[in-house]
Computed example of a mutant assay.
Amino acid sequence: MKLLYSPASPYARKVLVVAHETGQAGEIEVVTAGTSPTAGAPDVAPHNPLGKVPALVLDDGTCLFDSRVICEYLDMRSEGTHLFPEGAERWDALIRQALADGILDAALITRYERVLRPEPLRWDAWDAGQVAKIRAALDRIEGVVADMPVLDIGTVAIACALGYLDYRFPDLAWRDGRPATAAWYAVFEGRPSMTATVPPQG
């Protein structure tokens, strides 16, 4: 299998963490692919017409995207650890994954607004609205973190979202007022799957 990814992508990191946790990281060739919200992605588009990463190209040429689909595929083929529970616990895990992905959605478009959009065209109200969504989601996590299981797709997604906030939004200071989440993340970020997938600085 070949994973098209960007080293800074938190969605790609989520996929890689799942690959490590399920013992499949060694079966995946990781290929850095250039993507941009404003330009084409010639190395990705033949596989994913959306031009986005992560995209997992299987041995038969089939391409899976986005991160949620890839994570579930890897979980399905795992012969050991499974991160998608069954029954009522499944919906709880999926909701937490959606909450974490929502944080990332808001964070990424905020970064585009701040870094890529020409300064005279930046929209302060848009930026503030996205940051408000991030803070609201973080507050929800603070309320449920004590009841989260040790490991499932929801906890992986939340950890990757928090890691991205540290990486790109240190000024957000997400730990302030959220001691339970901060304590939880301090433990989770030490997992080998997380330390093996830390994005490059810069």
Rank of each mutant, 00 (worst) to 15 (best):
L64Y: 02
L4P: 01
A55P: 07
D66I: 03
P118Y: 12
T35D: 08
R117T: 10
A180D: 15
R77A: 01
A173W: 05
D43E: 15
Y11T: 04
R168Y: 08
R13L: 01
V44E: 10
Q97T: 07
R191Y: 03
K14Y: 11
E113Q: 15
A100Y: 14
V53M: 10
G202F: 08
A39L: 13
V198A: 02
A33C: 09
V131G: 06
S36F: 09
V17W: 07
V131Q: 14
L151W: 10
L74V: 01
E189I: 01
H47E: 07
L50T: 06
I109P: 00
M76D: 14
R135A: 14
G129H: 12
A39G: 08
A45I: 11
V53I: 12
R168Q: 12
D176H: 13
E89G: 01
W123P: 12
A186N: 03
A45N: 05
I109E: 11
T22V: 13
A137K: 13
A136L: 05
D127M: 07
P46D: 12
A100P: 09
R96I: 04
M148Y: 08
C160N: 09
R111P: 04
R96Y: 07
E27G: 11
P10I: 00
P200V: 00
L94Y: 14
G51E: 08
P46L: 09
W126Q: 09
E72V: 01
E89H: 09
R77Q: 08
E89I: 02
V15P: 03
I141V: 15
T195V: 02
V53H: 12
V53C: 12
G34N: 09
L83H: 04
T110Q: 12
T32P: 03
I28A: 08
Q201I: 00
F169A: 02
S78D: 02
D75W: 09
T181L: 11
Y73M: 00
T22F: 06
Y11S: 04
Y185G: 03
G26F: 01
A41C: 07
P10M: 05
G163I: 03
A8P: 00
E142A: 10
R140G: 02
R68Y: 02
I103M: 13
V15D: 13
L108H: 06
W174D: 06
R135E: 14
V18A: 03
A45F: 06
G202T: 05
T155L: 09
R68M: 08
I70C: 04
A180Q: 13
V31E: 12
A136K: 11
D92Q: 15
V187R: 15
N48F: 08
G26S: 06
K133H: 13
E119L: 10
L151D: 11
E27P: 01
A12Y: 01
F65Y: 14
V69I: 15
V17N: 02
V145W: 15
L3S: 07
D92W: 10
